[in-house]
Design a binder for these strands. Structure first.
Lengths: 149, 149
DNA sequence: GTTGAAACGTATCTACC
DNA sequence: GGTAGATACGTTTCAAC
């Protein structure tokens, strides 16, 4: 993981459609060694996947909600069931175990308040939670998948 | 935006390396119309971009923090300056204006607590904030960029 | 207007230095 | 890390339905 690898990652996490020769040119290398570096970064799992990012607004998924929950039981089995349950719910796009007052933070993307209500009922109906609080995003000011490397 | 378009989006937001003919085959279409649909989805901005997703852990960026802040002033200029300021800080990967007690929610990705402290000082030093509270993620249980279409 | 097929140019990947 | 070449792919054009 030298400087050139980092430059490759920086380019690819902003635009995965760049051709190997484009990248090679930008970092000052010929195609093949550049291609080999990219292959290696993929083999190491540093590049996890390449995905298309969609416009949530245009797909009528303009509502983002942060849902904080407290565990009903503080045992590992409960977490396992919750994790498995959440993995299957497409509206939950991010899910973290947290320190502090609330045990879990979910980021949920839905169409509108009505859709959120459907999701909410499904969430609380599917697993026992002791406390749930929802914070609604009114505006997305920044969203990036690019890490500071 | 019919069923086939949605299927294309569903495939591409999970794997943007799929070739047009792969996608065409999976949705039961020939290459050319499939290619045209993809072009159109890009032209409409529904497909915003294609990016590489990196492994944060492997890049030593294992710490995710949700930072909630209250505005120092509730005027549009202050928000504009804050938005511009945050856009330039790579550690801030998501940024929302919120309803509720706190006005803004930031998602911050850093290496460790020391790096977070550096970020924190930069944040509070760069712009006037009236209240800041940080919640630390101990474990990422789910993360996806794929929307529920 | 929508599809399939064929042709061209370019990117990817292998073999070798 | 670099060079040359085979292969596969995306892209465009054209003809058929």
């Amino acid at each position: 993981m030298d400087r050139l690898d980092r430059e490759i990652l920086r380019l690819l996490q902003n635009d995965a459609t760049l051709s190997v020769s484009d990248i090679a040119e930008q970092i000052g290398l010929s195609s093949t060694p550049c291609w080999r570096r990219i292959q290696n970064l993929e083999k190491l799992g540093i590049i996890k996947k390449r995905v298309a990012l969609l416009d949530a607004e245009k797909l009528n998924l303009g509502m983002t909600v942060f849902v904080q929950v407290k565990a009903a039981q503080h045992d590992i089995n409960w977490l396992g069931r919750f994790a498995e349950y959440a993995a299957g719910i497409e509206e939950i796009v991010e899910f973290y175990r947290m320190s502090g007052e609330y045990d879990y933070m979910l980021k949920v993307v839905v169409a509108d308040m009505k859709a959120f209500d459907v999701f909410y009922k499904r969430l609380v109906g599917g697993i026992e939670l002791s406390d749930v609080t929802s914070s609604f995003a009114m505006e997305q000011i920044k969203y990036t998948t690019a890490l500071a490397i």
